[in-house]
Design a protein around this nucleic acid. Structure first.
Length: 125
DNA sequence: TAATTGACCCTTT
DNA sequence: CAAAGGGCCAATT
């Protein structure tokens, strides 16, 4: 008999429609701004799913050229341990677009404040 | 099926 | 303002 196992590899994860929607939202973050994981979850229609946003980013195809560096914690800190290669890369990319990371934190004013009507139009699910 | 694990968040100290 | 603790929830083991 044929067993139908639900695949749980990276490929099927990337096929998860929730992830696609999360990626689409991340793509809307303007250069020079940042958004928190929870903020992205909310804007994607997935309230309470902040951790899923992190998961979606960690398993995102590199060819998407996703601005993952614009997603940080709600307390204004970068999510990666200080000094790690990934954290440094994120800090560098942010600096390139004018977002300075001081003591592992960005300014409150760096957070994206989207126009909801406009965003809804962009995200035509 | 139960336990563990996160690129998290919020409230309280 | 920083740290700790509890909560959260999908994915993994």
């Amino acid at each position: 008999m044929v067993t139908i196992n639900k695949p749980s590899n990276a490929a099927s994860l990337a096929a998860n429609p929730k992830y696609h929607r999360i990626w689409q939202t991340v793509l809307q973050i303007p250069k020079g701004n940042v958004a928190s994981y929870g903020q992205i979850a909310d804007l994607t229609g997935l309230p309470g799913r902040a951790r899923l946003v992190g998961k979606a980013l960690s398993s995102s195809p590199s060819n998407l050229a996703l601005p993952w560096h614009r997603v940080i914690r709600s307390d204004r800190q970068l999510a990666f341990a200080i000094g790690t290669a990934t954290a440094l890369k994120q800090q560098q990319r942010l600096a390139e677009e004018g977002v300075l990371v001081i003591n592992n934190r960005v300014k409150k004013s760096d957070f994206w404040q989207p126009n909801l009507a406009e965003l809804l139009h962009q995200l035509q699910y």
